[in-house]
């Protein structure tokens, strides 16, 4: 069995290596991507979208449809985890008993440090989301950092302490709302008479914004949606994994 696996992996790897021969050479200025697509994005981003970070403008504006479905992939993954792991009955499942069963003493140093540091983590996450236009960062990273702050709370206290701040119902609702913000902004563009996710027309409803600035605001809006969805799904996955779907004490 192991030999078959090795042969499969080896031949598949060889096939992939063979396929790379067809690629244009690395950093070739004559390759199709460097001739038309990249120069347009690099030179016109500032003029067209008012966003200085090219990665953000490509991710949320030029390729906004891709990012919307990336967000829905994360949402679907979270829903799948909840469907598989969540248990609503109180009955004990004896199939997997954790090897470490003794309760750890709550540590005052860890809890105090967590209490001090969590607000700063969340503030940094908001900065990452809002400053994604001009520096590395954006909705995904900021959302993950926001989710990580809640996970830190759940690890250093217990899951109940986290659920008091963000309940299961609220969390899953937030996941849906995040995705709804993204697709809602897209649908709003359709209602205003442009293509789906063409933020240019948002200048009709944002006061004192030109078409270029409207694109910048549209990007900010979808980043916020992504961040909310990612945060909620990260928390939901952690809560289900750590409490075996029972939402009790957790780890």
């Amino acid at each position: 069995m192991k030999a078959i696996g090795l042969i499969t992996v080896f031949s598949l790897g060889m096939a992939l290596f063979y396929a790379t021969i067809d690629f244009p050479p690395w950093a070739d200025p004559q390759s199709p991507a460097s001739l038309h697509v990249s120069p347009h994005y690099i030179q016109e981003t500032m003029k067209e979208t008012d966003v200085s970070n090219v990665v953000t403008s490509v991710l949320a504006d030029y390729r906004g449809f891709d990012t919307m479905f990336e967000t829905s992939v994360i949402f679907t993954a979270g829903i799948a985890v909840i469907l598989i792991l969540r248990k609503y009955s109180k009955k004990e499942d004896e199939k997997f008993l954790p090897e470490v069963s003794e309760e750890a003493e709550p540590d005052i140093i860890i809890q105090t440090v967590t209490r001090i540091i969590v607000p700063f983590i969340q503030l940094f996450a908001l900065y990452v989301i809002a400053h994604g236009h001009h520096s590395p960062g954006g909705g995904f990273q900021g959302g993950v950092i926001l989710g990580a702050s809640f996970i830190l709370l759940a690890i250093s206290f217990n899951l109940k302490a986290m659920l008091r701040r963000i309940s299961e119902r609220k969390d899953i609702l937030l996941g849906g709302i995040g995705l709804l913000i993204y697709s809602g902004i897209g649908a709003l563009c359709v209602l205003l008479g442009a293509n789906f996710l063409n933020y240019k027309v948002l200048h009709l409803i944002i006061p004192e914004a030109s078409q270029v600035e409207a694109r910048s605001y549209g990007i900010l809006g979808v980043e916020i949606g992504v961040a909310i969805a990612v945060m909620a799904i990260m928390i939901a996955i952690y809560a289900n994994l750590s409490s075996d779907g029972k939402y009790d004490k957790g780890l």
């Binding site: 997997f96 990273q141 993950v144 990580a148 994994l241 750590s242 780890l251």
Partner: peptide, 20 residues
């Protein structure tokens, strides 16, 4: 943030709840 941060936590949580 995703690879080194959150997914490590997920792995450890999964190991904790199953077998080592």
């Amino acid at each position: 943030s995703v690879g080194a941060g959150v997914s490590t936590v997920f792995m450890i949580a999964a190991v904790y709840k199953t077998t080592r």
